[in-house]
Simulated scan of single mutants.
Amino acid sequence: MTTDTMTVSSGASRIEAGPRGTKPKSLTFSRVGIYAFLVLAALFFLMPLWVMVVTSLKAMPEIQLRHIFQWPQQITFEPWLKAWDTACTGRDCNGLKPGFLNSVKITVVGTIISIIIACLNGYALSFWRYKGANVLFGLLVFGAFVPYQVVIYPLIIGMRELGIFGTFPCIIIIHTIFGMPILTLLFRNFFAALPPELFKAARVDGAGFWQIFFQIMIPMAVPITIVAVILQVTGIWNDFLFGTVFAGRENMPMTVQLNNIVNTTTGVREYNVHMAATILTAAVPLAVYFISGKWFVRGIAAGAVKG
């Protein structure tokens, strides 16, 4: 290698390495504009949350002064306790606590069953090409774009004929049905992005359908499984429509009971209790996103949108 070549290569390496590790010495007008836009956007989207928090910590006389953005003069947690334990959700005055327990049961069972079935579907559609597999996959993807309201009445009739309408198995089946298309698409695209040599080598060694699934595919599918868990947990927990129609009175989720608290028409509207109940209902999805946000991005990058 000549001296000129070494000089050019070293200069090129300095050019490539320079911008990555150095920060701009001064703020440009465009950078200030970007920061200003991001700050304003953050304030805009955080404003409702701020109003909810400060309102939930105020007593009703202070709320009636209509200073909705001000920090409470005297903080009280009584609205939170009432929203959780004694607020009326119709004829019962047990707060959100029963709805929270129902939402936990529905979310945990519905998420587990949905992910197991979707993972099997994605695995079979990727490596075990049976007759009509592409048609079935197309129907599953089409199901992801069908409006829920279109098929509610046929599902009501079907669940009534099965004798399970308004029961816990009914709401689990409904969430499994409507979570299947998007979850199957995620798992199928993830498995399709894996090297096919893994599957072929396992088949040569004599491994069967279930052995390959449990010993090879499941350990490799952890990133996309986390994505599926986040999507299904937040989707089931935030659901209101299916909970109202299919869950039945004994299995009402937290969102349905929140609606009953907020829409109470007798007595004084306790806005502090309403805000506290809303924050309690949204706490689980917020916690899921804050805790597992980085794993969600990793799972998407690992193959959720490949195929």
Rank of each mutant, 00 (worst) to 15 (best):
D205T: 07
G243A: 05
V109G: 00
G243M: 06
M159H: 03
S9C: 02
A124W: 07
K23S: 11
L194I: 03
F100D: 12
V150C: 01
L286C: 03
L198G: 01
V288T: 09
T55C: 00
L40I: 15
G299F: 05
V108P: 00
D92H: 06
S56A: 09
M47W: 11
V151D: 10
I218W: 01
G179A: 11
S114L: 06
F145Y: 12
V135W: 11
L162Y: 13
N121R: 01
V305D: 14
Q70G: 03
R31T: 15
A247C: 00
N272Y: 00
V284N: 00
L139Q: 08
G206H: 09
F240T: 09
Q74E: 15
L101G: 04
P48F: 13
F213M: 13
L96C: 08
A83E: 10
I226Q: 09
F165A: 14
I224E: 11
K294R: 15
V8W: 08
G248W: 03
P98E: 12
W80Y: 13
L286T: 15
N260E: 15
N189Q: 12
A287S: 14
T184R: 04
W80H: 02
V135K: 05
N238L: 10
T167R: 00
F100E: 13
F178I: 13
V222M: 10
V204A: 11
K23E: 14
T111E: 09
K23H: 03
G243V: 03
C88N: 09
N189L: 04
I174H: 02
V141A: 09
Y130W: 15
H175E: 14
M254A: 11
A17I: 07
Y35C: 07
G122D: 08
F242P: 07
T22N: 01
A42Y: 06
P195L: 12
E16P: 03
A118F: 07
A283S: 15
T234V: 15
K200Q: 15
F213H: 04
I75P: 00
I173E: 08
F45H: 10
T264A: 01
Q73F: 08
T184W: 03
I106A: 00
D85L: 12
P98Y: 10
D4P: 05
T265W: 02
H175R: 00
L139E: 11
G158W: 08
L194K: 10
S9A: 11
I116T: 13
G166E: 09
V151P: 02
V135P: 01
F290K: 02
L65Y: 09
A193K: 02
T167M: 03
V135S: 04
F246N: 06
G267M: 06
P181M: 12
T255A: 09
M220S: 12
F127E: 02
A202T: 11
D4R: 13
R20T: 14
F165G: 06
I75W: 05
A144P: 05
R20G: 01
F165P: 03
G99I: 13
T2Y: 04
P253A: 05
A193L: 04
L46Q: 08
R20W: 09
T234R: 05
R269V: 12
A144S: 14
E62S: 09
Q149N: 12
H274T: 12
Y35L: 14
N259S: 11
I112H: 04
V227F: 06
I182V: 10
Q257L: 15
M220R: 05
